[in-house]
């Protein structure tokens, strides 16, 4: 039973990394949002499995929140924003998909290299989970750095946050209140970002963050 539960946990966390990779090369915003929903869905499954094998009922709440907020509510709201802004047909220019993917692979290698020796003493399930969670976080950051569109940057941020939740649930004894507060802070960040997106759009007729820099007189 232990071997099986370990394999399933590992598979779910690995799928999360895989979905992160899927995100990296999505050039259409609507497709990107679908992948985000899938990302959160995999996260919810992974958390639920953790709840099952750790016998920790409060993790089911976390899983439900991941499912409700992150897999349904936020992608739906972002989709509405994208449609209302009228940018759902836009194709984002992502410079060098192949290069980005290679970078992502390097990041996964790096995080495995960092995490596995550090956590040598701990529970093997948590060990693999934390290493994979770090890859998810790093890929999310990579996405924020490579994208120019504000919506895609938000998506990158949300996937990064999913990675944090994965790491948190992998470790035993994480109190529920921490997860709830993290979830709420993400929700509030989402609302603020959503409002800003509209403000930016009103002003500059685009959500390309490069426009902000031009106004500021930056040396971009």
């Amino acid at each position: 039973m232990h071997g099986l539960s370990f394999d399933i946990a590992h598979m779910l966390a690995g799928s999360l990394v895989l979905v992160s990779f899927l995100m990296l090369y999505q050039v259409r915003l609507t497709a990107l949002l679908h992948v985000l929903a899938l990302h959160a869905l995999v996260l919810a499954a992974s958390v639920a499995w953790q709840a099952h094998i750790q016998d920790a009922p409060h993790l089911y709440v976390t899983a439900a929140m991941a499912l409700g907020f992150k897999a349904l509510l936020i992608p739906w709201a972002l989709r509405r924003i994208v449609f209302r802004l009228g940018i759902h047909r836009e194709i984002e220019t992502v410079g060098g998909i192949g290069l980005t993917m290679l970078g992502g692979m390097a990041l996964v290698a790096l995080s495995l290299q960092v995490m596995l020796p550090v956590t040598a003493m701990s529970d093997p399930v948590a060990r693999e989970d934390i290493a994979l969670a770090l890859s998810v976080v790093l890929i999310g950051l990579l996405m924020m750095v490579t994208r120019r569109n504000a919506v895609s940057q938000v998506v990158g941020f949300l996937s990064l946050e999913n990675g944090i939740i994965l790491a948190a649930t992998g470790a035993r004894g994480m109190p529920l209140v921490v997860e709830i507060s993290v979830a709420f802070s993400v929700l509030i960040a989402f609302i603020v970002v959503g409002i800003f997106l509209f403000r930016i759009r009103e002003r500059f007729d685009t959500v390309d963050v490069g426009a902000l820099d031009e106004v500021r007189g930056g040396r971009a």
Binding site: L107, L110, L138, L141, L142, M144, V145, R148, V209, G210, L212, D213, R216, G217, G218, R219, A220
Partner: peptide
């Protein structure tokens, strides 16, 4: 002090790496 948001993020990212 006058870089773009992406460059700042890039610095954070590079430092982390």
């Amino acid at each position: 002090q006058f870089l773009t948001i992406r460059r700042y993020l890039g610095f954070v990212f590079a430092m982390l790496i």
